[in-house]
Simulated assay, not measured.
Amino acid sequence: MNVIVVDDHPLVRVGLSSALKLEKNIEKIYEASNIQDTIKILTMNKIEIAIVDLRLANESGLELIRIAKNKNIETKFIVLTSSLNREDFERAKDLDVDGYLLKDAYIEDIIYAIHVVERGKKFYSQEILNINFENNFLNTLTEREKEILIEIGKGLSNIEIAQKLFISENTVKKHITNILAKLNLKHRTEAALYINNILKFGNAV
């Protein structure tokens, strides 16, 4: 099969291309750094797999995929990104991308994903799926419970949370009990780690 690596950073392109050249099933590897050049290459050549960075300088890798699909280019697309943002992943899924991988993935994982996608299946990074799974639980919380969870993440005590949100300490305790039950957590320390992990990766609360 033929593969194209689309990334605006030359070192990333060269590094990934060099690693993929060792694969027997990959015949030719193309490189591009922007939408225009990529579409030209995809139009003029039969390329089975495109590995596309989410952000291409001032352009969007997802916009590239949208344009290619509108032109009925028969290439399967794998997004390779450093973003764990839920909105980016959802937009990629809306475009029916075939794969979604993180840039810190091992080359063996990328090659495995290529072969999975080549066989007509989807391959999404487990880290991405975990973050979205966590957000599904988060959506079961009420707005007040979300507020309290955020304050727990900041390290505030029950009394401090009560004073900040103008509610009683007893009410805070009841909300925390509900939060732990809904998120299937045992301690407020786990709750703090949970919310900080989600906020760290840019997911909306």
Rank of each mutant, 00 (worst) to 15 (best):
G202R: 06
I4E: 04
I35E: 07
E74M: 11
Y124T: 03
R91D: 04
E118R: 13
E59P: 13
I41L: 10
D104T: 08
K21R: 14
E143V: 02
L138I: 14
V97R: 11
N196F: 05
I128G: 05
N70M: 04
R86Q: 14
K103T: 01
K164M: 01
V205S: 11
E90H: 07
K174C: 00
A113R: 04
V14E: 15
I195D: 00
L56F: 02
I148K: 12
M1L: 10
L16H: 08
P10E: 15
A105M: 09
S83I: 02
A32R: 06
S82R: 15
I128M: 10
I150K: 15
D8C: 12
L193D: 13
E118N: 11
I161T: 12
N135M: 03
G15F: 03
L138Y: 11
L42A: 12
L95Y: 11
I159Y: 10
L42Q: 11
K46W: 00
A113N: 04
I39Y: 04
Y106V: 01
I179A: 01
F137V: 01
A19M: 03
N85K: 08
D109L: 06
L95T: 07
I198R: 14
K103H: 02
G15R: 12
I35T: 10
K40F: 01
R144V: 07
N178T: 09
I78T: 06
L42R: 14
L165R: 14
K103R: 14
H9E: 06
D104V: 02
N132I: 04
A68H: 01
A113Q: 09
E27C: 08
E127A: 03
V3I: 10
A162I: 04
G99N: 10
D104A: 07
G120R: 13
L141A: 12
N135T: 02
K122T: 10
H115Q: 13
N45I: 03
A50H: 04
N25G: 03
V12C: 07
A192R: 15
L141S: 10
F166G: 03
N45Y: 06
E27K: 15
A57V: 00
I67N: 15
H187P: 00
I128C: 03
I29C: 06
I198T: 04
I114P: 02
V6Q: 05
L199R: 15
I150D: 10
I35S: 11
E160Q: 15
E134T: 03
S60Q: 09
R55E: 08
V205L: 14
A204T: 09
K154Q: 08
F77W: 05
Q126K: 15
L165V: 05
E90F: 04
A181S: 12
E151L: 12
S157H: 07
A105L: 05
I65D: 07
L129G: 13
N130L: 08
L180M: 13
L84A: 12
H175W: 02
K146C: 04
G61A: 00
D94K: 08
E143C: 02
E31I: 04
T142Y: 03
M44Q: 14
K103G: 00
S18Q: 13
A50S: 14
N184W: 06
